[in-house]
Design a protein around this nucleic acid. Sequence first.
DNA 1: CTTGACACCTAGGCACACTAGGCGTAGCAT
DNA 2: ATGCTACGCCTAGTGTGCCTAGGTGTCAAG
Lengths: 102, 102
Amino acid sequence: MKSELLKGNLELLLLAVLANEPRHGYAVIEELRRRGGFDLPEGTVYPALHRLEATGLVTSTWSRESGRRRRVYSLTRGGRRELASLRETWRGFNDAVAAVVA
Amino acid sequence: MKSELLKGNLELLLLAVLANEPRHGYAVIEELRRRGGFDLPEGTVYPALHRLEATGLVTSTWSRESGRRRRVYSLTRGGRRELASLRETWRGFNDAVAAVVA
DNA sequence: CTTGACACCTAGGCACACTAGGCGTAGCAT
DNA sequence: ATGCTACGCCTAGTGTGCCTAGGTGTCAAG
């Protein structure tokens, strides 16, 4: 999967996954692999989640499952709004590319 | 138009435009604006065309139209092959994103 | 007691498009 | 005459954003 294409779409993907249900980082990675065949390194996803939290699009709470600590993220209202917006942007860009490539 | 999204797609767009007919750089920019609403700066397009030529995907010839010099680019056979390949990659990536975002 | 999956983190690198400047011609308006 | 705008090309350097490469620690299996 050529990774340059990801640029600008990472936030969209993360928010979309978290929109279904709250998840911890590692689970987000697995879900993205399962749904879309993405193979995102942790060094990509964790900092991105931190950024999302810093900008108020997600919130996190620590939990402990059989000795393992997890940070579980969920969307804020602003996160849902941003998700909708990014979806639109993505569609728009895709249509534009399609109009050229078609 | 959020520009990060362009990353990894620029080559595809340029090759797609040149696939229809040979064009000079400035005309490529105009055609991309016309077809897809892209507003690519010259500092993006010209270096990209140079790269495409350096890797043998396009060739160029100078021409002079009413005093103005133009460098006209056309696809090579390798360029057509690459275009087909990039198109596939693009579709694949889109489907993957759609599978997550949908 | 080592290997692998789970689960988190971060500093620094790298690739790519873009910014910001440059050069020169032609045509039109002031 | 002299701007100004569109045409048409160019490049060094910047910035954004994902990835590499390393680190910490728990738990189960062999």
